[in-house]
Amino acid sequence: MTFSRVISRRHVLAGALAAPAVLSFARLGHAATTLKISHQFPSSSGDEGDFRDRLVRRFAAEVEKRSNGELKFEIYPGSSLMKTNSQFSALRKGALDFSLYPISYAGGEAPECNIGLMPCLVSSYAQGLAWKTKPVGEEFNAYLEGKGVKIITWVWQAGGAASREKPLVSPEDAKGMKIRGGSREMDLMLQAAGAAVLNLPSNELYVAMQTGACDAGITSSTSLISFRLEELSKNLAAGKGKSYWFMLEPLLMSKAIFEKLPKEQQDLILKVGAEMEPFGLKGAQEDDHKVVEVFQKAGAKIHDLDDAVLEKWKVIARDTAWKDYAAKTPLSAKLLKLAEEVQA
């Protein structure tokens, strides 16, 4: 089956809007492939705005430049191409080319993905980024590729808790609160602390907090800023120093689409993807500090987490989230064990 026939079939199945890898003609008449990147985050402009959108735009521009226009990109921020929770499945099926995606959102159809937001497992950027070259990263890569998805750029983000009224710092604070945690494992830990939990993507947090359906939202520093949660919050437990919330939020590519490309284009995508990782790290770290400034300016009270508080959360996480995850499959147990071997 030729590449053009595959593309034609997907156009019929997915419709013109969502169809990936559209063939066109580059300058000088060379055939070009247009790839679609979808994500849930707000659009950026130049050097301003959500660094995750800026990362995919830098990636796209660099790949297009180095491929002499043979690879082109269309970028769809704000879940404008498809709903947030549909993107992982679309990648697997080859109905979407790329997504910068919070990996734990895939936990419903790929439970092992929830290790990407396991409370208290990762406690620093260096520790999380070290996964890439450690056995845990190799196993996780192999698992994702078996599901039809490739990691192109490793991105980790620390997170904090924005709350409408009372602060959410220690486990004792969670009792009676309605909290969005971001993954099944986070929810298990929060429930054990006495909270009610909500399962929704971070781009739906504003409305949930605005209506009172949610008392506190735990998400990345960047999302706390981009989704303007300072407008609704009186307190912020910041993640700039210490946090029990670190999420793997990589740039992903459909393996089916990747394998249809020539070897030189595959190599280029992987090379540029790796080159984006320092930009992602810098953006995440800068937002860990910027979020404090944004919330302070809006009048919120800032709270930092210390080692004693983190240890309280970790005790609960081990007895709930870690235990539940390890019992799911032999691979889950193996991934958790390998992740614990990566030192902070």
Rank of each mutant, 00 (worst) to 15 (best):
I115A: 02
A142C: 00
F73I: 12
S80M: 00
Q87M: 00
S124Q: 05
P171F: 12
G128H: 10
G78Y: 08
G78S: 15
G108F: 01
R164K: 15
T84L: 00
S99H: 13
G94L: 06
Y105C: 07
W154G: 05
A90L: 08
F140N: 01
E109C: 04
A90P: 09
G107P: 06
D97H: 14
P167A: 15
G94C: 12
Y105W: 05
R164F: 13
M82L: 10
I152Q: 09
L100M: 03
I103V: 08
V169S: 13
P102K: 03
D97I: 09
E109D: 07
A162G: 02
Y76M: 14
Q157L: 07
Y101N: 04
L91G: 07
G78W: 13
I115K: 05
I115H: 04
E112H: 11
Y101H: 09
R164A: 14
K175W: 04
P102E: 02
R164Y: 13
G69E: 14
K93C: 07
V136K: 08
E109N: 01
M118V: 00
P119C: 10
G78E: 14
L71H: 15
P102R: 05
T84D: 02
N114G: 11
P77Y: 00
I75K: 02
P171K: 15
L144S: 03
D173I: 06
A158H: 11
I103K: 05
M177S: 05
G94A: 09
G148C: 07
G116H: 11
A110L: 01
P111K: 10
A174I: 05
C113A: 13
S79M: 02
I103F: 13
L117S: 02
P102A: 10
Y76A: 07
L71R: 14
L144D: 01
V169M: 07
C120M: 12
G128D: 08
A126G: 15
A110F: 00
G137V: 02
G69R: 15
P111E: 09
K132L: 09
I152S: 13
K150I: 05
R164N: 14
V155Y: 04
I75T: 04
A161G: 12
L168H: 12
M118N: 02
Y101E: 06
L81G: 03
E70N: 14
N141G: 05
A90M: 09
P171H: 11
A162E: 01
M118F: 11
G160W: 03
E138T: 11
W156K: 01
W154N: 08
G107C: 08
E139G: 01
R92D: 06
K147C: 07
V136A: 13
E165S: 10
V155C: 12
P77A: 03
I115W: 13
G176F: 06
P135C: 00
K166T: 09
K93L: 08
W131F: 15
N114W: 14
V136I: 14
K178T: 15
E109W: 03
E138S: 13
G94K: 14
R92Y: 08
E139N: 02
S99R: 08
A110C: 04
A106K: 09
A161C: 13
W154M: 06
G128T: 07
Q87Y: 04
S123I: 14
L129H: 11
Y76E: 11
I179Y: 10
N85Q: 15
Q157S: 12
L129E: 03
A161E: 10
Q87E: 02
V155M: 11
L117T: 09
K83R: 14
A130Y: 01
G148S: 06
I151G: 03
S79F: 02
P111C: 13
F73E: 07
P171D: 12
Y125V: 07
